[in-house]
């Protein structure tokens, strides 16, 4: 099974460890993982900003780079959602490209979704011990149906206790460029999320999208909380989160 890892911009730039963790999990599941070297961005920032031309150019590039693989896996519901839920629509006026986009979309998965539903992993190599609370990122949850998958994987780690926070499915306020354009509102939503997460007393806030996690961590630290960890689910599952 040849799987291409879609690293995502944020993992590439901000947290390479998340990409390495994803790689490790995929290999653990028996995949031959390849990382196309020229990948940059899925185009979502342009798409959500109304710059359709740039989004299409980047989508075309991604399709060219990734269409030769059995599966494409991204450690992000947001980027995975972009490819799976929006690429076909992006090329609505170009039937040939739309067909390729649809083919790619059908083979593209968010990491935990892939681990659970395609690889059907029996166990994960992680060794995290402690309480965690899981933030459901919007795109993963509502575009790709990622809800039970990360929880099922966390349940395979004997040292992990999951405590659900209130409003786990409510947006953390990141929203890509929204977090910059409407800083006050975005901060308020992040603050609500931090409040709900910290109320669980969990050692770590875990999520599947780095955008949300950076937003939550940024607010958490500004609130003065230097203790609560903010971790990507891949880091917890792959065993490099301590």
């Amino acid at each position: 099974m040849r799987v291409a890892l879609f690293v995502t911009c944020l993992a590439d730039l901000m947290r390479p460890g998340v990409a390495f963790a994803a790689l490790r999990l995929l290999e653990h599941g028996g995949c031959t993982v390849e990382v196309p070297d020229t990948q940059t961005c899925c185009g979502q920032p342009a798409y959500n900003s109304g710059d359709r031309a740039t989004a299409m150019a980047l989508a075309k590039k991604v399709i060219g780079e990734f269409e030769g693989f059995d599966y494409v896996v991204a450690p992000s519901g947001s980027c995975g959602g972009m490819i799976r839920a929006h690429y076909p629509e992006l090329f609505r006026d170009d039937p040939a490209l739309q067909k390729r986009a649809e083919a790619l979309a059908a083979r593209t998965y968010e990491l935990t979704d892939f681990l659970v539903n395609i690889l059907k992993l029996d166990g994960v190599p992680g060794d995290f011990a402690g309480t965690v609370t899981y933030h459901d990122s919007c795109s993963g949850l509502r575009e790709l149906g990622v809800k039970a998958q990360p929880r099922a994987l966390l349940a395979k780690l004997p040292g992990v206790k999951l405590v659900e926070m209130d409003e786990a499915e409510t947006c953390c306020g990141f929203g890509g460029t929204f977090s910059l354009k409407f800083g006050e509102v975005s901060t308020q939503l992040a603050d609500n999320k931090c409040g709900n997460a910290c109320a669980t007393g969990a050692d770590a806030i875990v999520g599947g999208d780095l955008g949300c996690l950076l937003n939550i961590e940024g607010r958490l630290r500004r609130r003065g909380d230097m203790k609560t960890k903010v971790l990507h689910i891949a880091e917890v599952l792959a065993g490099r989160s301590d």
């Binding site: 690293v7 993992a11 590439d12 730039l13 901000m14 947290r15 390479p16 460890g17 990409a19 390495f20 990382v35 070297d37 990948q39 977090s179 910059l180 354009k181 409407f182 800083g183 006050e184 975005s186 901060t187 308020q188 992040a190 603050d191 950076l214 937003n215 961590e217 940024g218 607010r219 630290r221 500004r222």
Partner: peptide
């Protein structure tokens, strides 16, 4: 943690910006 960043005060007015690791994943590869 980055407490203030030019052009993105919308973020840093109310949040810190967690600093990157210093090398990109593709670079490490």
């Amino acid at each position: 943690l980055i407490h203030r960043l030019p052009f993105v005060s919308g973020w840093t007015d109310g949040r810190d910006f967690p600093a990157p690791e210093g090398q990109t994943f593709r670079e490490l590869c």
